[in-house]
Amino acid sequence: MVKVKQESNLNGQISIRNVSKKFMDAKNTEVKALHNVNLEIKAGELVAIIGPSGCGKSTFLRLISGIDNPTAGELYIDDERITGPHFTRGFAFQNPTLFPWKDVWHNVATGLEARGILKDHSADVDEYIELVGLTQFKNAFPHQLSGGMAQRVALARALVNHPKALLLDEPLGALDALTRMSMQDEILRIWNEQQMTLLFVTHDIDEAIYLGDRVVIMSANPGQIQRVIDIDIPKPRRRNDDIFFHYKKIMLDALGVNID
């Protein structure tokens, strides 16, 4: 197992206070993507965000990353106001969005290159590629990779900056069931090693329960946090355990789906 050097003082405590976000849609009507959202996330926590389409979960993540700004309210990380993107908050889209003109190595190295520290830290790039198990492919181009491999590269790319918080927007949504499950274990493993705060958006209830310390359930129209559920299963978790189904029932109820 590769142990990556810990440089920064990882905290990653995130506060979201009274945050709202409005958009104008294609017909020029106002859309309330998020309305008055409040949440406190502890440093190093693994939080899953789940909800139906249009509940604002992707918007929520983008606000935390700083790619978008709220129309009302504030977001803080370690008591610092979030006003724009920063390399301490790593991000990965559902679509790996690898830079097609760079090979795997250079994609992963992007963060270090952008910060001007690549020369001294080029060994980090190799380590993170090894962390996601793609050393063999470090000279391959994105179009030569499978979906799962590309997503792993995207992860390594986000991690290379040792972020305090890692934000994943449905990272495994495009993968088949088997790949998804092995990738979930990968994410768990990385989170265990790096110990950063990890927020991820998912559609998959099983995934939320398997990975999350807490699960945030959102509802749509307007986007709001409906309920937050603590998942009190010790890790590592097993998908077949009865307690798994117990939480699944709670989740399904909360999401308004009858299983009886």
């Binding site: 993107p85 920063h86 390399f87 969005t97 992007t110 952008a114």
Partner: peptide, 22 residues
């Protein structure tokens, strides 16, 4: 695709890097 630029910004890219390297 503007996603390229968004990702780049989350990786710490300033405007110059976005322009010349993305």
């Amino acid at each position: 695709n503007k996603s390229y630029f968004e990702i780049a910004r989350t990786l710490g890219a300033d405007e110059r890097y976005q322009l010349l390297k993305i």
